[in-house]
Amino acid sequence: MTTVDWPAIFLSVRLAAIVAVMLVAVGLPIAHWIAFSRRRWKFLVEAVVALPLVLPPTVLGFYVLVAIGARSPIGRAWTAWTGRGLAFTFEALVFASILYSLPFTVQPIAAAFSQVDPTLMEASSTLGASRWRTFCRVVLPLSVEGVIAGTVLTFAHTLGEFGVVLMVGGNLPGVTRTVSIAIYDQVQAFQYDTANQTALLLLAFSFVVLAGVYALRGKPWSVVPLP
């Protein structure tokens, strides 16, 4: 009898942690722009950010694969920098996952930002604070629950992704074989017991994470990203 594929679980956790941290860095400015910009074409950016919610993972995965392929500018730049290709590597998974999980980070944070009373930001600026200081001292502390919710949701979502990972990373043990692909493999090999153990782990973890987020916010409906 085979055992739970721990390397795949560790790889998934590592991937999810890296993506969650990087997405907070990328998502904060995007969420800030979405929450406070008055540009007429803001809806276009919002739509682009929300695309991964409705796109089939294979579609997103396909375009990411094309975008990072050896002939693409991104692929060529990566090869020139590192000396190897980008497709079917762990870095490719990180890149694809950032795109795929973008709305899970940006939407809760943007929602939290837009709930901050604009008068507080104006008060801050009349008290001599720059926009950056206002963001750090007023906007961010008052949105901390949204930021935590976005980060945790991103982590949980990345942990369980399948389609995009398969398209962009393939199934290389220790490199791109994540837990959801491991479960798929186990089912293909009729190892239902092992698949069940791994799946249960993922299920329990996802439940704990979501319960934690909902408990934190106290408003379950405001955490779920809008399609």
Binding site: T119, S125, L142
Partner: peptide, 20 residues
């Protein structure tokens, strides 16, 4: 001159004290 460089005190109708 931007608001944060004017040295103008402003007490808002809603007071706008930072709640946190």
């Amino acid at each position: 001159v931007q608001a944060h460089r004017r040295n103008v005190g402003y007490v808002f109708q809603q007071l706008a004290l930072f709640p946190h």
